[in-house]
């Protein structure tokens, strides 16, 4: 983390300390049913006190909201729930944020994302889409825009791709791989339709993977 891991209250920013104490008091005073906003305010005040970057904040929020939740509640976890288009949009924006700064110098190239969305065919019994797909394109004067593109039902095609993504690592130990397809100035990311696969921290990880795929020789 970028900030001090153990801020000393005496030397910390008085405004940050004050904000933290106020957030805590507001939470204590609240008597309603849904204290989500108050907890969020307390979180943000703590982030500010520690001087955490936006990246650090995302890693913490996903760790608490998805990873720990999955470890505790397993198949009932929110981490395995289907993704909303809004969460996919956030994923796309965070992935582009990981790559885009490398193209700020000496280049007009930027990234643009298309999030493919489709309605399920009527009568389909499966509870959720098998995979989701996002296309990223390097284009002149693109600035990290992410748009939702409505397409025909892709489930049948994606199910066939998904079947090839299951791999046996050892006897009785299986993994479901994620797929990155590169083509000219575009790349596609295909992953299971689970929130943990398309979180903001997954986007940061995938941005690293895309860069690593191209820093070494073909």
């Amino acid at each position: 983390m970028d900030g001090d891991s153990d801020p000393k209250i005496d030397s910390a920013s008085p405004a940050a300390v004050e904000a933290l104490l106020e957030a805590e008091q507001s939470l204590r005073d609240y008597r309603g049913d849904d204290a989500t906003n108050f907890w969020q305010s307390l979180d943000h005040a703590a982030y500010d006190l520690y001087g955490l970057s936006r990246r650090d904040r995302v890693l913490i929020e996903d760790m608490v909201g998805l990873t720990i939740d999955f470890q505790r509640t397993h198949e009932k976890s929110i981490a395995l729930k289907s993704c909303s288009t809004e969460s996919l949009k956030q994923y796309a924006e965070w992935l582009m944020r990981g790559i885009q700064p490398l193209f700020a110098a000496g280049s007009d190239l930027g990234l643009r994302a298309k999030i493919y969305n489709w309605k399920r065919a009527q009568g389909t019994a499966a509870p959720s889409r098998s995979l989701r797909v996002i296309e990223f394109a390097f284009e002149d004067n693109a600035h990290g825009e992410a748009e939702i593109v409505e397409v025909g039902d892709l489930d049948a095609a994606l199910s066939r791709i998904e079947a090839g993504l299951h791999a046996e690592l050892a006897e009785g130990l299986y993994t479901r791989r994620h797929l990155r397809i590169y083509d000219q100035n575009r790349f596609y990311i295909l992953k299971p339709d689970h929130q943990r696969s398309w979180s903001r921290s997954a986007a940061l990880n995938d941005a690293d993977a895309v860069i690593a795929d191209h820093l070494r020789g073909p």
Partner: peptide, 20 residues
């Protein structure tokens, strides 16, 4: 946290990320 190295990649971008 997402799993490291859980990905599989196919093809290569024409954009030179190394130069960038």
């Amino acid at each position: 946290m997402p799993e490291k190295n859980a990905g599989e990649s196919v093809g290569r971008l024409r954009v030179d990320i190394s130069d960038a």
